[in-house]
Design a protein around this nucleic acid. Structure first.
Length: 292
DNA sequence: AACACCGCCTGAGCGC
DNA sequence: TGCGCTCAGGCGGTGT
């Protein structure tokens, strides 16, 4: 599932094919996946891509005209720059752009840009300007790849939810989904049900570092390909083999051998090691009325 | 206000 | 072989 590392891998893999290039005509097979009027201009047809940016799990194509197209991959979405032969015969292609011919190098064969998404949890959101993008992204928490302890502490202050639930909230922290929430909590040695606002500054610092490290390593491995995920060139990622807990419920912990626990937390299957991530007594909530 | 929960959608995997 | 069931989960909308 595309979380931050997968979206970042898509972004990086598409830079050679898209940056500085002008998209050709667009064909819209399923207008419903576009949030708003699905006009060719809104979809950046015949517009030059001047930047590819990411915030959390969202990817934005910035065009010369000033228009912006946000790409949400959802669970099964793919943005692919492919040769005609690879592009042919793909199912669930909702929007398709032509890419200009020529240009030597790795992107020379990429003649089509495709947005496909079998389950349609993803979609495209056209925006009129960079300012509109900034406004939209201001609703997101800080990007998880650069999360600092202070920012995490600020986001989680006074929250009574389980830390697992808080990490999944994109307004708290942008980019972490179910896989990397479990992996980061394991790396930090924190039990997923620990109330977020009760974590000590030390443990929050450890968690922030664990989040950054886990995400960076996943990016280096090309992301986590369970079933659907591939990057912009159609390549699968290799991080699944490095998962410590996600998808391993009832298997032995790779660190201590204890049987991994599994439960539904915040409506998500959550896996953790009861020994490496033992619940411990956290600091109690300080009275808000004391000494103010 | 903070949080819980629902439902969208398809294909893989399973039991029978 | 094939059918029906369950499960996966990002995220917006609604309920408590």
């Amino acid at each position: 599932m595309p979380e931050l590392p997968e979206v970042e891998c898509v972004r990086r893999s598409l830079v050679p094919a898209l940056l500085g290039r002008t998209l050709g005509p667009v064909t819209i097979h399923r207008p419903g996946i576009v949030d708003g009027p699905a006009t060719t201009a809104a979809l950046l047809a015949r517009d030059e891509i001047v930047a590819l940016e990411r915030r959390g799990k969202q990817l934005a194509l910035i065009a010369r005209s000033g228009r912006v197209l946000i790409v949400h991959l959802g669970m099964t979405g793919q943005l692919l720059a492919l040769s005609p032969s690879l592009a042919a015969g793909l199912s669930h292609v909702h929007v398709q752009w032509s890419l200009p011919a020529s240009r030597v190098g790795v992107a020379a064969n990429a003649r089509f840009l495709l947005f496909r998404d079998p389950r349609r949890f993803g979609g495209l959101t056209p925006l009129a300007s960079r300012a509109a993008l900034d406004q939209r992204w201001s609703a997101l928490g800080p990007d998880a790849l650069g999360i600092e302890p202070g920012a995490l502490r600020e986001s989680l202050r006074d929250s009574r939810r389980p830390i697992k639930a808080a990490l999944l909230d994109q307004a708290v922290l942008a980019g972490v989904g179910n896989i990397y929430a479990d992996e980061a909590l394991f790396a930090a040695g924190i039990a997923p049900r620990t109330p977020a606002g009760r974590l000590s500054p030390d443990r929050l610092a450890k968690l922030a570092e664990a989040i950054r490290t886990t995400l960076m390593r996943a990016i280096e491995s090309g992301g986590s390909s369970l079933r659907d995920y591939v990057d912009g060139n159609g390549r699968r990622g290799g991080f699944v083999t490095l998962h410590q807990v996600y998808g391993r419920g009832a298997d032995p912990c790779r660190r201590c051998g204890t049987t991994l626990a599994s439960a539904l937390i915040a409506q998500r299957t959550t896996v953790w090691c009861p020994r490496c991530q033992a619940a411990r007594r956290e600091r109690t909530k300080r009275s808000t009325r004391s000494f103010t």
